[in-house]
Design a binder for these strands. Structure first.
Length: 435
RNA sequence: GGAGAGAUGGCUGAGUGGUCGAAAGCGCUCCCCUGCUAAGGGAGUAUAGGUUAACGCCUAUCGAGGGUUCGAAUCCCUCUCUCUCCGCCA
């Protein structure tokens, strides 16, 4: 959520920055400014009336104490009238407030000044590349073929169980997935200093609001119902990312500044309805309704949050480097960034069988956008309450990492070589060509 | 799922309709006093919003939301969470 004070002090700046993400957002600025002043006006009026009522009520109390009952009764009649005015004005103020809040919750974060302005993903800029595309002396197969021939993923039965977009990992495939999860967590915990957490895989509405998923993207979430109780529907949602629970860990808290920074990492499955998204219906592991991911979350003081973002990006890169997978880093343009982000870097890993780069990580600094939505604060060195910056990054998404790994390390004989760091996790240096 | 108890400021804990935003204690901060040792005295110590040049003033908040009332921490309703016991269960 954007700071309402900024709208009062510098609406032009907000309008200009929002316009880089879409004119429809910039168009809301005037509404916000107008509603804010309406709200304050109504509020002031209500508060004045309340002050009057409180004072009069105290007088009544005093009169009652002195047994001056007639005077007290007269006063009561007078105050009752004030009460009616208050409820009327209060209701009006409440309506304005709801309207204002609704608009604010649907406005995205302001992009950082350094973010390239763009209209589509075509306008993202490549920052760097690491490694090289591996050379093959045979035609590299796509992961779907490899998975089928080695029995790593049973696409047909996954679909039989839950529909398209659901995967049944099996045998070496299931073991590789588990090995990767373990490997990623261990690296972030032991080498990068993150605290591992294992969060609930369902969260309440407020958590989804807090990270900016809701209200705008409610159509993309899986809503849960308890048994046949329709009343319970909407109390919980399957998490689209571990960011939803983990970034909310300290929601509505006031942290001490010495408690910062907080570094969390978490494994979780991620559930995405992907309503209307391209590629959901197609076979394979690139876009699915459920995938595993190891997520990194940081809660830090605003000063230095961009250094923390670079470090986080480096932590995610380290995974790919250690597995010797070629990748590139993109900085997303204003239009392609997620809702709450002020700056986002995507890491795309090379998948030879696809002949394409796959997004496996997205590292964002949301600045105080989320902490404001979730009312998370910390006391700074001067004892003032401030909103910390919240960063999130995938470290990394699993299904696509799985794809890149098996497509990169496929051998002419159909087996898959296992990179050295994973060998102890998988207890082999090679997934054999056939069982 | 059933029965019961509870939720008050950083913590402990009073407070059942009228200067209660809230006693007391602990903790913490500052000041004073004292130089023989975890001593004593005093002051301060929630959050948000509005208003003011500022001191300040006003409003809201005693788990959350609603209601009764001139007035609610206190009465009523709904919800959430915690604890105890029983049942069921991975």
């Amino acid at each position: 959520m954007l700071d309402i004070r900024q709208f009062r002090e510098n609406p032009d700046h907000i309008r200009e920055r929002l316009a880089t993400r879409g004119e429809e957002f910039a168009a809301k600025v005037d509404d916000v400014v107008r509603l804010d002043s309406e709200r304050r006006e109504a509020n002031t009026a209500v508060e004045e009336l309340k002050a009057k009522r409180n004072a009069a009520s105290k007088e009544i109390g005093a009169l009652m104490g002195q047994k001056k009952l007639d005077e007290a009764e007269a006063k009561k009649a007078e105050v009752r009238d004030i009460g009616d005015q208050i409820s009327e004005l209060d209701a009006k103020a409440g309506q304005v407030d709801t309207k204002l809040r609704d608009i604010l919750l649907r406005l995205p974060n302001l992009p950082h000044a350094d973010v390239p302005v763009g209209a589509t993903e075509e306008d993202n800029t490549e920052i760097s590349q690491w490694g090289e595309k591996p050379a093959f002396d045979f035609e590299p197969k796509p992961h779907t073929e490899i998975c089928e021939s080695l029995g790593l993923v049973d696409f047909a039965r996954g679909a039989k169980l839950s529909g398209s977009g659901f995967l049944l990992y099996s045998g070496w495939g299931a073991r590789l997935e588990r090995a990767l999860i373990q490997y990623l967590l261990d690296m972030h915990v032991h080498e990068h200093g993150y605290t591992e957490v294992s969060p609930p895989f369902m969260v309440g509405y407020d958590c989804m609001i807090g990270v900016g998923q809701f209200p705008k993207f409610e159509d993309q979430a899986y809503m849960v119902q308890e048994g046949l109780d329709e009343e319970s529907r909407g109390k919980l949602y399957l998490i689209p990312t571990a960011e939803a629970p983990v970034a909310n860990i300290h929601r509505e808290e006031i942290l001490k500044n010495e408690e910062l920074p907080k570094y969390y990492c978490a494994y979780s499955p991620c559930f995405r309805a992907e309503a209307g998204a391209a590629g959901v219906g197609t076979r394979g592991m690139i876009r699915v309704h459920q995938f595993d991911k190891v997520e990194l979350i940081k809660v830090v003081e605003p000063e230095g949050s961009y250094d923390e973002l670079q470090k986080m990006l480096g932590n995610a890169e380290k995974i790919l480097q250690s597995l010797n997978l070629h990748y590139r880093i993109l900085q997303l343009c204003t239009a392609d960034m997620s809702f709450g982000s002020a700056t986002t870097y995507d890491i795309e890993v090379w998948a030879p069988g696809q002949g394409d780069y796959l997004e496996v990580s997205s590292c964002s600094n949301c600045e105080d956008y989320q902490s404001r939505r979730m009312n998370l604060r910390y006391k700074d060195a001067d004892g003032k309450n401030r909103h910390p910056h919240i960063l999130n990054g995938s470290g990394t998404a699993l299904a696509r990492l799985f794809v890149a790994l098996i497509e990169t390390y496929q051998q002419p004989d159909g087996s898959i070589a296992i990179p050295e760091p994973l060998q102890s996790y998988l207890r082999t240096d090679r997934i054999p060509a056939s069982e």
